[in-house]
Amino acid sequence: MDHNNLLAAWPVVGPGVAGAVFGAGWWFWVDAVVCSAAAVPFLHYLPGFFASFAALMFNCVNREDIGDGYYSPYDDSEWRSGVIGI
């Protein structure tokens, strides 16, 4: 298989793979918390809450918004150099 074909297919397949890995990890976390014979302290719930909140936050951003045309504060663009006076 050609290496260039794999690189071209990664933007299409990558988010699905990432979602499957996140889903599997979340499922194992819920299973461990629910099926635990011992009393689970609230502190053990926090990783699942934070991971769920993080997944919600990064799914709220459109792919087009993070393309190559975004503004970077580290880039020497005309807008930035005019404001700073460089």
Rank of each mutant, 00 (worst) to 15 (best):
S36R: 05
R80A: 01
W29N: 01
M1R: 05
L6E: 14
R80T: 01
A51E: 05
Y70P: 02
A9K: 13
S36W: 08
D68H: 08
I66K: 12
F58Y: 10
G67I: 01
C35H: 13
I84T: 15
V40G: 02
W79L: 15
P73S: 02
A39K: 06
F53Y: 11
D2P: 04
I66M: 12
A38N: 07
G19S: 06
A39V: 08
F53E: 13
L56V: 13
G23P: 01
V40I: 07
V13N: 06
G69S: 10
E64R: 08
D2T: 06
N5K: 11
E78S: 14
S36L: 00
A9P: 02
I86F: 13
P15K: 00
P47V: 04
F49A: 11
I66H: 09
V61K: 04
P41Y: 02
A18F: 07
V61P: 04
Y74N: 04
V12L: 14
V12H: 07
M1F: 06
V40E: 05
N5C: 03
H44L: 15
D75I: 06
H3Q: 14
I84Y: 14
F49N: 00
W27I: 09
R63T: 07
V17A: 12
W26Y: 15
D65I: 03
Y71A: 11
D75W: 02
A55F: 05
F22L: 11
A8V: 14
P15V: 05
A54C: 07
V61Q: 05
V30H: 05
L6N: 13
A55Y: 00
V30K: 00
D75R: 12
G25C: 07
V12M: 14
G69A: 06
A20H: 02
L56C: 10
V13R: 07
N5L: 15
P73A: 06
L6H: 13
F22P: 01
S81G: 00
G23N: 03
W27K: 02
G23D: 01
C60V: 01
P15Q: 05
L46H: 04
P47S: 10
L7F: 13
G23F: 04
N5H: 10
F28V: 10
G67F: 00
L43H: 07
N5S: 14
F49I: 15
V30M: 11
P41G: 09
D68E: 12
A38Y: 00
F58A: 03
L46N: 01
W10T: 13
A8H: 13
P15R: 05
V17F: 01
C60L: 14
F50L: 14
A32N: 12
S52N: 10
G25V: 02
L6T: 15
L7V: 12
V30R: 13
V12Q: 12
W10I: 11
C60R: 09
S81A: 15
I86H: 14
E64V: 03
A38L: 01
C60P: 05
W79K: 12
D2R: 10
V21T: 03
P41I: 03
V61F: 02
Y71N: 12
A54F: 14
V61L: 08
A9L: 13
A9R: 08
V17D: 00
S52T: 15
E78D: 09
F28C: 07
A51H: 00
G23S: 09
D68T: 11
S81I: 15
A24P: 06
S77A: 10
D68L: 09
C35S: 13
A9V: 04
S72V: 01
S72C: 03
H44N: 11
F50S: 09
V33N: 08
Y71F: 07
